[in-house]
Lab assay of single mutants.
Amino acid sequence: QIFVKTLTGKTITLEVEPSDTIENVKAKIQDKEGIPPDQQRLIFAGKQLEDGRTLSDYNIQKESTLHLVL
Rank of each mutant, 00 (worst) to 15 (best):
K10Y: 13
Q30Y: 15
Q48W: 11
D38H: 15
L49E: 00
Q61R: 10
T21A: 04
G34E: 04
L14R: 00
V16S: 04
G34C: 07
L66S: 01
D31I: 12
I29E: 00
Q48K: 08
K32H: 10
Q39L: 12
F3T: 06
Q39W: 09
E63A: 12
I43R: 05
K26L: 04
L42W: 01
L14E: 00
D57R: 03
I29L: 08
S64W: 05
E17W: 12
E33M: 13
I35M: 05
Q1T: 14
I12K: 01
T6Y: 11
F44S: 03
V25S: 00
I29Y: 02
G52S: 12
D38K: 09
P36E: 08
K28W: 05
A27L: 11
Q1V: 15
K32I: 14
R41K: 13
A45I: 06
T13C: 11
P37A: 15
E33A: 10
T13Q: 08
Y58H: 04
N24E: 14
V16Q: 02
V4A: 03
V25Y: 01
S56W: 10
T21K: 08
E33L: 13
T13L: 10
T6E: 04
R53I: 06
D31C: 13
Q48L: 11
Q61P: 14
K10L: 13
T13N: 06
T65H: 12
L42Q: 00
D20T: 09
I2C: 03
R53K: 15
I29P: 00
K26Q: 02
F3S: 05
G52W: 12
E33Y: 07
T11C: 13
S64P: 03
K10N: 08
E50Q: 09
E63M: 13
L70D: 10
N59K: 09
A27M: 15
H67N: 08
E15N: 12
L66E: 01
N59T: 04
K26T: 02
T21M: 07
T21E: 03
K62P: 12
Y58D: 02
T8Q: 14
S64M: 12
G9P: 02
K28N: 03
Q61I: 12
L42T: 00
G9F: 05
I12S: 02
K5P: 01
I60T: 02
G52M: 09
P18R: 06
V69T: 09
K10C: 13
I22T: 05
Q40A: 05
Q39S: 08
P18Q: 11
K62R: 11
L49T: 03
S64Y: 08
T13V: 13
I60Y: 02
L7A: 13
Q30V: 04
K32W: 06
G34V: 02
K32L: 11
T11L: 13
I43E: 11
D57E: 09
T6G: 06
N24Y: 10
Q61S: 10
T11S: 06
L55R: 01
V25Q: 00
E63S: 10
G9K: 03
V16M: 08
E63T: 07
L70G: 09
G46K: 04
V16N: 02
K5S: 08
E63K: 08
G9M: 04
I22D: 00
G9C: 07
I60C: 04
N59F: 07
K28D: 02
E17N: 14
T11V: 15
R41Q: 14
I35N: 03
P36W: 06
A45S: 10
V16P: 01
L68F: 03
S19Q: 10
K47I: 15
F3R: 06
L42R: 00
T54C: 08
S19V: 06
I22S: 02
E23P: 03
R41H: 13
T65P: 03
I60G: 01
I60W: 02
E63C: 14
L55A: 02
I22W: 02
D20K: 02
G9H: 05
L55P: 01
Q1K: 12
Q40W: 06
I35Y: 13
L66N: 01
S64N: 08
G46Q: 05
D38W: 11
I2Q: 01
D57H: 12
T21W: 05
P37F: 14
K10A: 08
G46S: 05
T65F: 07
H67V: 13
A27H: 14
D20L: 05
T8A: 11
E50D: 09
D20E: 09
L66G: 02
S19N: 14
A45E: 15
L66K: 01
L14F: 04
P36T: 06
L14Q: 01
Q48R: 08
A27Y: 12
Q39E: 11
F44W: 09
D38I: 10
V4E: 01
Q39N: 10
Q48Y: 14
D51G: 06
K5T: 12
Y58S: 03
V16D: 00
N24F: 11
L49K: 00
D57I: 03
D31W: 10
D31P: 02
I22V: 11
L68S: 01
N59I: 04
K26F: 03
T65C: 08
K5Y: 09
D57C: 04
T65R: 04
L14M: 04
A27F: 14
L55C: 06
R41V: 15
V4R: 00
V4I: 13
G34D: 06
P37K: 14
S19W: 13
G46C: 10
A27I: 15
T8F: 11
Q48D: 13
T6Q: 07
K62S: 15
E23Y: 15
Q40G: 03
I35R: 03
T54W: 04
F3L: 06
P37L: 13
T54F: 06
Q61A: 13
L66C: 01
I2M: 05
K10M: 10
T21V: 04
P18Y: 11
T21D: 03
K28Q: 09
Y58I: 03
S64Q: 08
I35Q: 03
V16W: 13
E17H: 13
Q39V: 10
T8S: 13
H67M: 13
V69N: 06
D38A: 12
S64E: 10
Q39P: 03
G52F: 12
